[in-house]
Design a protein around this nucleic acid. Structure first.
Lengths: 230, 230
DNA sequence: CAGTGTATATTAGTATGTCAATATCACTCG
DNA sequence: CGAGTGATATTGACATACTAATATACACTG
């Protein structure tokens, strides 16, 4: 096999397909390859120094997720962002996370959960002050994941990640809006309501938080109209 | 290519992969191939008269869904039924369908929805009397789908189908319990509450309905312990 | 006969070859 | 100059070939 200069993929213990998949997924989410941009199995396989098979299998996975559009005999493009996908993604995420909140407020022992939430809030406070958005969003994820984990539903979290991916695409597409203070405040409200077992407050706080992203559609469309379909 | 006697797959306008996928999926759900049973890419490709590639791609899709376990250099088996999968499946389905019910009761114009629900109730009544379980369950699906469709969320339904698949596996695994009258009654309660816009009643009726399946775990495990893991 | 090493078969992973459908573009003809 | 046309290149779908890892069977050793 042609090892070439692209040895980055030949290192660790996953299948080629996995590594190619991870690589492409990251490129799509970071917009290193842009919506509607054409992808070629042959080109990519050469660039990554692997054969067409793992590239193709990675393509198929990504098509499954709605991140690629494969058109037989025509080509493969990064799926444009679609408002319909966004709405679907948001509906599903909201359904999942509100269901998790309902579980969380009914937890007989919520000390661990509240400790975890508090931990992330402190981290977020620091990251927000230091303007470290990557770290902030990492803790943001951990905050939401903690709810699932401490409800004994850790295996639900990957599913939430799956359904919220299309929402995340929109967030990646716009310059981050320096809105970490707002998000932190919303997280505080959510955590407080959950720990007080105030279901109604927790649900409305979470709903507000999750729908905050609604403006993303318009913003992303304004900033990068070429990424959109229709 | 070896056309052979198995020309059933060569007919219509989907890709080979799609056809192979549909074929295997149906076999798994109908238990024509049983949990923990070994599947071979080579054997199946010969049996279906296609090459390994489409079979393999279908395998990968099914692994994604959690219906196959592919172990490198060892083999591929139909995933055993796992209680954890069932619970995950049920949690997600409930989250989705309760969210749909919340939308449904807030519909400004629900005449179309109520008409559709009533239609399915009538059908189910007949199918139940005639003991036609296949037709009954088809209408069962349509009943639930109608809620999504008439909320303007038709594209959510495939996602619901996706998440509820593991629940359905358990149902297929046990002799159907002649419970269609119970289900019909639950459907009536759901439809009535939705059309009256009684959110609390609709939610509790739907919850009751969706959790009815809880006994399936125990029943299926009793009836076919060899299908289970652990 | 028990235990171990080894040949062989089978597996999924990967690479490559082939093909039909489609797009592209230069070219011809009106 | 524009519309149609045909050669050519590119694409994804599918077939096949090869590899490395693992399981299995069996012969050999003690």
């Amino acid at each position: 096999m042609n090892v070439s200069e692209n040895l980055k993929l030949q290192i660790v213990g996953q299948s080629m397909t996995d590594r190619v998949y991870d690589a492409i997924l990251a490129m799509i989410l970071k917009l290193e390859i842009r919506p509607c941009e054409k992808l070629s199995e042959v080109q990519l396989s050469k660039k990554l120094g692997v054969s067409r098979t793992p590239v193709r299998e990675a393509f198929l996975r990504l098509e499954n997720l709605g991140l690629l559009d494969i058109v037989p005999q025509r080509g493969t493009i990064v799926a444009p962002m679609r408002a319909a996908e966004f709405r679907k993604s948001q509906f599903m995420r909201e359904a999942f996370e509100l269901a998790l909140v309902r579980r969380a407020v009914e937890l007989e022992d919520n000390t661990e959960l509240c400790k975890a939430l508090d931990r992330e809030l402190r981290l977020q406070s620091v990251h927000s002050e230091l303007k470290d958005e990557n770290a902030f969003f990492e803790s943001d994820e951990a905050f939401h994941a903690a709810i699932a984990v401490h409800c004994g539903l850790a295996d639900i979290w990957p599913e939430v990640q799956r359904v919220k991916m299309h929402m995340d695409r929109f967030r990646y597409a716009i310059r981050s809006q320096r809105e970490t203070p707002t998000i932190l405040e919303q997280h505080r409200n959510i955590a407080e309501a959950i720990c007080k077992r105030d279901e109604a407050a927790a649900l409305s706080a979470m709903t507000l938080h999750l729908r905050r992203a609604n403006h993303l559609i318009a913003d992303a469309a304004k900033e990068h109209p070429e990424y959109f379909e229709l």
